[in-house]
Amino acid sequence: MALPPSLRPLIIAGTSDAPHTLDIFLDYVCPFSAKLALAIDNVLVPALGPGGKYHGKVKAIFRPQVQPWHASSTLVHEAGLAVARAAPESFWAFSLALFKRQGEYFDIPTSTCTPLQIREKLTALAEETIPVPSSAAGKFADLLLLKSSPNGGTAVTDDLKYTIKFSRQNGIHVSPTVMWDGLIANEISSSWGEKEWSDFLLAKVVV
């Protein structure tokens, strides 16, 4: 599937020209998404990366899946997209860090926080994740500043709109959801480990 240039860092495993595509819709504040993200890092990233069995054959794309019934979902996904622009090479590392600490952004912990306070907390996480010395952390914070117009959003609002529209046009309603070559693969579960992923790829890809 195609990606705008600013969102190329969302290819978290494999090469951009790989013929097969896994579109993986994840929400940073969804526990099942976090579980799948760890499996992706442990199983898919090595399998699709250099030296992996499926390198050059399959790419995995992280598709941000904002779920607005969680008030912080929009804010955490803005942060992920800001890292994709400010420090593309750190996008997946930041995403994993956010998944591991997602409980800090659940409904009750954030219920007494303003959006600005949540963004400040996310900026601190980005500063921990992006290698130092780096000017990218400052750029990240700038990308999350509200524009001067009363309802103008931030510098990553257009990227956020793209990800939401992409989910809507593909009928994606919940996270995690995975598409294989453009079709929803309902059999894929957040509980999958190395065996299930290996069996799936073996059946789908000619090596």
Rank of each mutant, 00 (worst) to 15 (best):
A87L: 02
Q67M: 14
I188Y: 03
K35A: 03
G171Q: 09
A60Y: 02
K100A: 14
K35R: 13
G14Y: 00
L201T: 11
R8F: 00
L3E: 13
E120A: 12
Q169M: 10
N186Y: 13
K59C: 01
L81K: 14
I61G: 08
T177S: 15
P68V: 10
N42L: 05
T74H: 13
S6L: 07
T154S: 10
P31M: 10
I188W: 05
E194S: 14
Q65H: 08
K204H: 00
H70T: 10
C113W: 13
I12A: 05
M1V: 12
A141R: 15
A13M: 02
A126R: 12
G56K: 07
E127N: 09
I184R: 12
S111Y: 04
I130V: 15
I164G: 07
H173D: 08
T163C: 14
A34I: 01
S191A: 10
K57C: 04
K165R: 12
S189C: 07
L3N: 11
D159P: 10
R85L: 14
W192T: 05
K195L: 07
V174A: 14
P50W: 01
L144W: 07
V156Y: 04
Y105A: 04
V83S: 04
L143Q: 09
E120F: 02
G52M: 07
D181E: 08
I11D: 04
S111W: 04
A34F: 09
T163M: 15
V206D: 08
A86E: 09
F200E: 01
V132L: 11
T177W: 14
S191D: 15
I164S: 11
C113Q: 13
A203R: 14
T15P: 08
A34Q: 12
I118S: 08
P4I: 08
V58H: 03
D199C: 02
H77N: 15
S73N: 04
G52I: 09
C113M: 15
A47T: 00
L160G: 08
F200I: 01
A47G: 02
R168I: 11
A126K: 10
A13T: 04
F140M: 10
P19T: 02
T163A: 08
G138R: 11
A47K: 11
N151V: 03
A13G: 07
F140L: 09
V58F: 05
G80L: 06
S16A: 10
V45C: 05
G193Q: 02
A82S: 10
I118C: 07
A60R: 08
A86I: 11
V76S: 05
R8T: 01
S90C: 03
S72R: 03
K35M: 06
D158C: 03
K121I: 00
A141T: 11
K100N: 13
V83G: 06
V58D: 00
S72L: 00
W92R: 14
F25I: 10
T110E: 09
Q169N: 10
A185E: 13
Q117K: 15
A71L: 11
S73A: 09
G49W: 00
V206E: 11
N170G: 15
T177F: 12
W192D: 01
R101N: 15
V58A: 03
K204L: 00
S149R: 10
L7W: 05
S191R: 14
E128N: 05
L116I: 07
A84R: 11
L38Y: 01
H55C: 06
S95Q: 02
V76F: 00
L22K: 08
F200D: 01
P109I: 12
Q169H: 12
A82Q: 09
N186E: 15
D181V: 12
N42M: 02
